[in-house]
């Protein structure tokens, strides 16, 4: 059996004294596009942050391609929420994208021509090459998102984490992101996306994890993205969705 891209076992995370994730298991086979869904406060973002080592778990362990994250960092790319940074920061699009090379570059080394070329290439993939010299405050929400995607792309990773990449973006950007996700999957990469829009889950993804502090379900969309599980994850709040769901 091939090694899973992610193996999370018994993960428990507490903020101050309040548990955010309780004893969660999650396994993501290599080469899947996976959505993490769940209501607000379900611990979706916490989940990927703890896999990335940004939050210390109270218990449990995380393996990335069979080893602890710290050893596999070079295989992982990360797209944080767009709103997590100050877009008035004095820097250009190209500069932000080149930050994706910092991890490979290491301490004290300066950026060079190869980093530049890689960044331009990634910008081209997200349709933002002509914006390379643009100051980042001049970008629209969708463009900001694409810059963040490009930054993760230059990391040239095997496994990508994206925190709500579709949040507040225009239709063009949404299509561009979906295309990109599919390209990544064809190239054998694994992508984990924190996702809000339940209706597009079956269309965009092939694997899904449903969270609500505990794991509700985790598996292929066709198997686990069921009304019953949705109701378990969202409580009564999801009733209106079952009708919509039938369309897919």
């Amino acid at each position: 059996m091939a090694v899973n891209a992610i193996d999370v076992t018994d993960l428990t995370i507490a903020y101050k004294d309040k548990p955010v994730l309780w004893d969660v298991d999650m396994e993501v086979p290599s080469g899947t596009l996976m959505a993490i869904v769940g209501p607000n406060g379900a611990g979706k973002t916490t989940m990927i942050k703890s896999i990335l080592g940004l939050i210390k778990p109270a218990a449990g362990q995380v393996l990335v391609y069979g080893k602890p994250y710290a050893e596999q960092r070079h295989l992982v790319g990360y797209v944080p929420q767009r709103g997590s940074v100050d877009w008035d920061f004095p820097t250009s699009v190209l500069d932000v994208v080149m930050m994706g090379r910092y991890g490979a570059l290491g301490w004290l080394k300066r950026l060079g021509a190869s980093e530049r070329a890689a960044a331009l290439d990634a910008l081209d993939k997200v349709g933002m090459k002509s914006f390379a010299q643009r100051q980042i405050s001049q970008l629209s929400g969708g463009q900001q998102q694409r810059v963040f995607l490009a930054r993760a792309l230059v990391q040239d990773a095997q496994l990508y984490f994206m925190d709500e990449p579709f949040q507040g973006v225009d239709a063009t950007t949404e299509r561009a992101i979906v295309t990109l996700l599919q390209e990544l999957r064809s190239a054998g990469k694994t992508v984990v996306v924190v996702h809000h829009d339940l209706q597009t889950v079956p269309e965009y993804f092939d694997w899904v994890t449903m969270l609500n502090v505990r794991r509700i379900a985790c598996g292929p969309v066709g198997d686990v993205f069921t009304d019953q599980n949705l109701r378990k994850a969202y409580g009564g709040k999801v009733a209106f969705l079952s009708a919509e769901n039938g369309k897919h």
Partner: peptide
């Protein structure tokens, strides 16, 4: 100047910097 690149990164996006292992 020595840690320019690193300081710039943590100032702009500290969490991303942490994910890169800084």
């Amino acid at each position: 100047m020595t840690f320019w690149k690193e300081f710039k990164l943590i100032t702009f996006d500290a969490e991303y910097a942490a994910s890169l292992g800084y």
